Simulated assay, not measured.
Amino acid sequence: MRRLVDQLAAQGRQVGRDTVAALLKAARFSLRGNARMPAGSQHPDLEAQFGHLNATVAAFLKAGHPVISLDSKKKEQIGLFTRPGRES
């Protein structure tokens, strides 16, 4: 909150922390911690997703269209660490 007040002051807007807090609350902003899930959890429909991809690839290949395959890695959390979401 303090950083936001300081940044507004740098722009020439003099407001207090209470005003900023009230405006953020009125805009439905709230402080929340990050939700953490253990590593290795999978999407419940993973098999259905791969089935859909395989069917789509087969249809494209049958029609003579090229198919590009990409392999990407999901970022995994190492542990159930949280950040409080507040600055002093």
Rank of each mutant, 00 (worst) to 15 (best):
G16R: 03
R2I: 14
D18H: 10
A63S: 10
V15D: 00
L8P: 00
I68K: 02
A26G: 06
Q42D: 08
E76C: 03
T82M: 10
L23H: 05
G33M: 14
V5Y: 02
Q42V: 10
R32Y: 11
R17N: 04
T82H: 11
G64W: 02
R3Y: 12
S72M: 14
D71P: 03
V15E: 01
G85A: 04
R32T: 14
A35Q: 13
Q11Y: 08
A58Y: 05
V15I: 09
S30Q: 12
P66S: 09
L24I: 03
H52W: 15
A39E: 11
I78E: 15
G12H: 03
A63P: 04
A10T: 09
E47H: 06
Q11T: 05
P44R: 01
A22L: 08
G51H: 02
R3M: 12
Q42W: 06
E47W: 01
F60W: 13
T82F: 09
Q42I: 07
R17P: 03
R13W: 08
F50N: 10
P44T: 01
D6C: 08
F60L: 13
R13E: 12
R13S: 09
D6Q: 12
P66T: 03
D45E: 11
A27N: 08
Q49N: 13
S69P: 02
F29A: 05
V20S: 03
R32N: 14
L46H: 04
R83P: 07
D6P: 02
A59E: 06
Q7I: 05
P44I: 01
H65Q: 14
T82Y: 08
A10N: 09
L53K: 06
L46N: 00
L53S: 10
A21R: 07
A59M: 02
G40F: 05
E87C: 04
G16Y: 02
